[in-house]
Write a protein that binds this DNA or RNA. Structure first.
Lengths: 225, 225
DNA sequence: CGATCCTTTGAAGGACGTCAAGGTCTGTGG
DNA sequence: CCACAGACCTTGACGTCCTTCAAAGGATCG
């Protein structure tokens, strides 16, 4: 059973003005809030009151079946915007993977801004399209790729998004498994296999710090990545 | 090998004016074209020149890996709009499942209309969001549901979209399999199982015509459908 | 009415899931 | 500083669901 006994989430209570910039990610900093590791930021089907951008940390967005099976739709890293909805409610639950600080703005003010500024409106469409494209690629992964191919694709994605071959994974093997539609053991075995094949290495004494030794060889494990 | 030897696709060469209505699907009829069963309408990564709406027939949109594994991202039925892109190129290949007639409009004219009409712009965002929501639900299906659950969810979707418990499936078992991330045999077995359980029945002498006898029982096979 | 395609069903195999054990690291308190 | 608990990761053994391979029976169409 997955009954939530008490709602321990906190909401910020100060909000100022908000705007967009032409920076890589267009939301301007405003109010911010910090969530401890594992804390829920918003729940599926809850009213979408805020839009979030990550200042520091990482977030997982997921759906869950009634018996507890979980599918993580996306990980959100530094500077990523999440929680943006066109409809009234959130379609995912969002949780902090590690201690995470976010900027946030009210959804309604974003909406009213979009109503008066076509550039913002276009920006919303562009962001939604980016999310759609990610989901489309992920459907191919979930429907048709093997365990090793999925893990390879995941590492390539993390390498690309962090812009570094030294990938620091904030999420656990279980999170990765629920993102890739696998068991955590299958993820562990696939990582081990890639390690044995000389594609990657571990840094330090934890398994969360990975260095990709041979990106092209990693690509060879992911068909049409 | 999946090399396409010749490009036999045809393009319409007449285009008139185009607009939007407030009908369930907002594209107004204009130029139209008919594709024979199995013909490609556009290919992945091709320039997105047109946007399509189905007048009659059905279309599959898919991605394919280099070794031929295929993932169908969506089926498009009567009145559905597909091929709408924000970027320059198509992200899927689209093929006619059966003989299909589509209305079409030039992408650039739609773009210019959106630039001057905020309502159209909102409509584009709404359609993109609908596609995103479908993809998000499909990720959960592909990542975490069993074969019977996937097939049940598929039949529920078809029942909903056709608005009838008498579901006429234009697509083959292989198409369904590639939509659900299964083998065609697994689909066949799951349908047989649902038939034995009294959830559905076949009409006529083909297996493409299905009547759903007990929708609530069908729902019981799909957790959180 | 034969050729082809599609579907079903059975049998065997394999990839991944489940269960279990053991190891490492971290944090906490004695 | 060390003992201990807990969280997390790895690895092995085994089970199972789905895939693959194969065969046979329609259905469709020229």
């Amino acid at each position: 059973m997955f009954v939530r006994t008490t709602d321990q989430r906190l909401r910020p209570n100060t909000l100022g003005d908000l705007g967009f910039t032409s920076a890589p990610h267009p939301m301007v900093k405003l109010s911010e809030f910090t969530y401890r590791k594992g804390k829920e930021i918003f729940g599926e089907k809850e009213p979408a009151e805020y839009v979030y951008q990550i200042k520091r940390g990482a977030v997982r967005s997921y759906k869950m079946l009634s018996d507890g099976r979980r599918q993580i739709g996306a990980f959100h890293l530094k500077d990523d915007i999440f929680g943006l909805e066109n409809g009234a409610n959130h379609r995912f639950t969002a949780e902090a993977v590690v201690q995470t600080t976010v900027y946030l703005m009210k959804r309604v003010s974003l909406q009213s801004m979009a109503d008066t500024d076509a550039a913002i409106s276009r920006n919303l469409l562009t962001m939604t399209t980016a999310n759609l494209e990610h989901a489309e690629n992920h459907m191919l992964l979930l429907g048709r790729k093997t365990a090793v191919e999925r893990v390879a694709a995941f590492l390539i994605e993390m390498d690309r998004r962090t812009g570094s071959s030294n990938v620091s994974l904030p999420m656990s093997r279980r999170d990765i498994a629920d993102y890739l539609g696998l068991s955590l053991e299958a993820v562990s075995r696939a990582v081990s296999r890639l390690h044995c094949e000389g594609v990657l290495n571990f840094i330090g004494n934890t398994q969360r710090e990975i260095v990709i030794l041979d990106l092209s060889k990693l690509h060879s494990f992911d068909p049409q990545g």
